[in-house]
């Protein structure tokens, strides 16, 4: 187990090094002058040079890379050239907001996806199954930003049931941060009204974010469950008179769980990527919005910081899924 973990961590570091190199190169070969953009349209050549020097952009690219790697080793991700903020401090603010949204979306996707997948498999060719199959295709095929706009139009504009965007109304002060996640912090600070308002604000973006993941989990659950439910040992269990619910949940689902876990791990990464679109449409002040805002001003350090944060989370999620394989199926040894 420990050897496995060490090996995976080494692999994670290697992947991280690759990610850093690729992100750095892509950012710096982009046809843009971040110093000129940060200096503003009126800036003189000397003002642009001042900014370029302050952020070390006048140094050769290999030296810039070495400096970046050196800073990274000290967990420093540089400063935004557009705002002057330390990227590490920005991530500490925006990452929890994204994680809150992703966790809500992932929780909803897992519960609904697995439930609907099981129902569709158990009642194959029934109404639920048809609905599930249509939903599984639609959830993946329809772009998240389009669904987001349509739902905003329906729920916020026409029916006025849900807020159109943001994490909280501007008139409500967020709770003093503990985790940085507003809903959780409001609960921990015993501010139920703030928690509920934040939850209502999260409903639409979390739902939109969950859709592709929900559809994928539903599809794989249905597919695996259909296969497992036809297996001899399931038939045997049924013949022995074990209650149908127990057969499905304890026996069949557990055996179908490994591919579902793989899908959840994979989708977690995609979901982090999708936040870029969803957070922009819903003005959710998270990592995705931070990355988009920074990218539009060719602000390298925040873009690289956000990419690294998402990359690390994705790798950690994959590691957790690998560990969960052993829990789901004792025949799999973590080695």
């Amino acid at each position: 187990m420990i050897r496995f973990l060490l090996r995976r961590l080494a692999f994670l570091l290697l992947s991280l090094a690759g990610l850093v190199a690729i992100t750095f190169v892509i950012s710096h070969v982009a046809p843009a002058d971040p110093a000129a953009l940060a200096a503003g349209p009126d800036a003189t050549a000397s003002m642009i040079a001042t900014i370029r020097h302050q952020y070390g952009l006048d140094r050769p690219l290999p030296l810039q890379f070495l400096r970046y790697v050196g800073d990274l080793a000290r967990l420093q991700l540089g400063h935004s050239i557009a705002t002057g903020h330390a990227v590490t401090a920005d991530l500490a603010v925006y990452l929890p907001a994204t994680l809150e949204l992703v966790l809500l979306a992932m929780g909803f996707a897992i519960v609904m996806g697995v439930t609907l997948g099981i129902l569709a498999a158990v009642r194959r060719e029934g109404l639920v199954d048809h609905f599930a199959r249509i939903f599984a295709v639609g959830g993946i095929a329809v772009p998240a930003f389009w669904i987001a706009l349509i739902l905003q139009l329906l729920f916020s504009v026409y029916w006025r049931l849900l807020p159109i965007g943001g994490q909280l109304p501007v008139a409500i002060a967020p709770p003093r941060p503990i985790t940085g996640m507003v809903i959780l912090d409001a609960l921990l600070r015993e501010q139920p009204a703030v928690a509920s308002t934040a939850l209502v604000h999260a409903l639409l973006p979390a739902f939109v974010l969950s859709l592709p993941c929900l559809a994928s989990i539903l599809r794989i659950t249905r597919q695996e469950m259909i296969e497992v439910l036809q297996a001899h040992y399931v038939r045997t269990a049924r013949a022995q008179g074990i209650a149908p619910t127990r057969v499905v949940t304890r026996l069949a689902l557990r055996n179908a769980m490994v591919p579902i876990l793989s899908m959840i791990g994979l989708r977690f990464g995609f979901m982090l990527g999708t936040t870029v679109l969803v957070e922009t449409v819903f003005d959710w002040p998270g990592l995705g919005l931070y990355a988009v805002t920074s990218a539009t001003s060719a602000d390298f350090a925040p873009v690289m910081g956000a990419t690294l944060a998402i990359g690390v989370l994705f790798m950690l999620a994959t590691l957790v899924v690998d560990l969960l394989y052993a829990v789901a199926d004792p025949r799999i040894r973590v080695s």
């Binding site: 501007v170 509920s196 308002t197």
Partner: peptide, 22 residues
């Protein structure tokens, strides 16, 4: 607190966003 949060959430959905009183 959880009951309060749930009740407030239901209330917030029933009477959402609209004009926030400043």
């Amino acid at each position: 607190m959880l009951t309060g949060t749930a009740a407030a959430t239901a209330g917030a959905i029933a009477a959402p966003g609209g004009a926030e009183a400043f």
